[in-house]
């Protein structure tokens, strides 16, 4: 894939819907934003605002969409090819649901490698476990022997082991304890600088997104109401009333803690 004109992910006039005719629900309406290659972009909003749906549309898990989605300068059609999957990977929200209950860590990682035709499987697994901060003794464990944070590290390892350039993060810390959340966020920040990854992160937590991303889109009821930089966010310079409401709630929460 060409990596020209600095393009990471671009969305223009994207609509995503579920169901047909009377049962049709428009989950995302006329969404548009651009993530530069190597950048990190956050999507914020309450549950049901359509932020995860955008990730699903990009990955092809939500089949009904219209508009233009481009990844690394190439427009996506209805089908995603091998090329797409080797460039874009995703980390899911719930680490308890995203690992196969009957596969060891080793099996999960070697399956990913063999799907993309990598050799030196052994070396790569040892290295990626190291990179995500897991001891080698975790390699042959089953998911039920791991904690939530360890599972999420395995999920991150699974996504990164095939060396993608773009990582989609669907609330990667919301199912974890607060103390583990910080560890995972720091890990993700470190991996991004080490590997020069492009992040598109979904969260309902402004603090998490503010920590990770340089640009943020605020979503409400399927629409992007405002895109602002993290500096503006920190300076509480929001124009849209909904964004201000979110900011106020977040500041309030801070004070109470």
């Amino acid at each position: 894939m060409s990596q020209g004109n600095n393009a990471g992910i671009g969305l223009e006039h994207v609509n995503v819907w579920f169901g047909e005719h009377e049962e049709r629900v428009d989950a995302v309406k006329d969404a548009g934003f651009a993530v530069p290659f190597g950048g990190s972009f956050g999507l914020v909003g309450e549950s049901g605002s359509g932020k995860s749906t955008i990730l699903r549309a990009i990955t092809g898990l939500a089949p009904d969409w219209s508009g233009k989605i481009s990844v690394l300068g190439q427009d996506l059609g209805q089908d995603r090819g091998k090329e797409f999957y080797s460039a874009v990977q995703m980390v899911f929200q719930d680490p308890y649901a995203s690992l196969h209950p009957r596969q060891t860590v080793d099996r999960v990682l070697s399956e990913a490698l063999s799907l993309h035709g990598f050799d030196t499987i052994n070396d790569r697994i040892i290295k990626i476990l190291d990179d995500v901060g897991l001891d080698q003794s975790f390699r042959f464990r089953w998911p039920h022997q791991l904690s939530g944070g360890q599972r999420q590290r395995v999920a991150i390892a699974r996504a990164l082991i095939i060396e993608p350039t773009i990582l989609l993060l669907d609330e990667p810390t919301s199912a974890l304890d607060v103390s583990v959340q910080a560890e995972i966020l720091n890990l993700l920040t470190r991996l991004r600088t080490e590997r020069g990854l492009t992040y598109l992160m979904v969260s309902h937590d402004l603090a998490v997104v503010g920590h990770m991303c340089s640009e943020i889109a605020v979503m409400n009821d399927g629409e992007i109401v405002e895109v602002l930089s993290v500096e503006d966010l920190r300076a509480l310079k929001a124009n849209h009333p909904y964004t201000r409401q979110l900011l106020d709630a977040s500041v309030q929460k801070r004070k109470n803690e």
Binding site: L61, Y85, V88, A97, L99, P101, E111, H116, R158
Partner: peptide, 12 residues
Amino acid sequence: ADFIHAIKLQGA
């Protein structure tokens, strides 16, 4: 399940 989505996203 997410683990099936995940393997689908690996291109299986």
